[in-house]
């Protein structure tokens, strides 16, 4: 058993140095921001790269959710609890970004609903939800 573990030791060392790079020596907690950036770029890429209109909306959602996470992360105070007024709590997360992002979540829901409603209408009008097919139809019309 130990042999197998030892065999993976270099990989584990690599992971440790990766973590050290992500987190940074003096500032713990940067990992969260890396996740935010990763999600953000994933969502952005889906919006740009996919032709399916519903997938574009999903990508847009991932993109927006990464921003929600970004706000939640910046509110975190290390060692702090949830911002609830109670006996014996003196260190707590900043509640303001939480509130801001509640608003942004509502906006995101409204945008998704409207986007999907438009996709339904587009499906009825064009009989497809693939962007490249719609563009081909529209180019035909322009000619």
């Amino acid at each position: 058993m130990q042999g197998i573990v030892d065999a993976f030791q270099p990989l584990y060392d690599l992971w440790l140095s990766f973590e050290a790079f992500m987190v940074g020596p003096a500032s713990p907690g940067l990992l969260g921001y890396w996740i935010v950036i990763g999600l953000m770029m994933t969502g952005f890429y889906i919006v740009i790269a996919h032709d399916n209109l519903v997938k574009k909306i999903v990508g847009l959602n991932v993109f927006q959710v990464s921003v929600f996470l970004f706000y939640i992360l910046m509110a975190k105070v290390s060692g702090g609890t949830a911002p609830i007024l109670a006996e014996g709590i003196s260190v707590y997360s900043n509640p303001l970004p939480h509130v801001l992002i509640l608003t942004a979540i509502v906006v995101g829901v409204a945008t998704t609903a409207l986007g999907l409603a438009l996709v339904v209408r587009i499906r009825n009008a064009y009989n497809t939800i693939e962007d490249d097919e719609i563009l081909a139809v529209e180019e035909e019309e322009d000619r």
Partner: peptide, 13 residues
Amino acid sequence: LTASYRYLIMGTL
């Protein structure tokens, strides 16, 4: 509809 959809994607971004 497609114009509005594209505006929605770009505007939200």
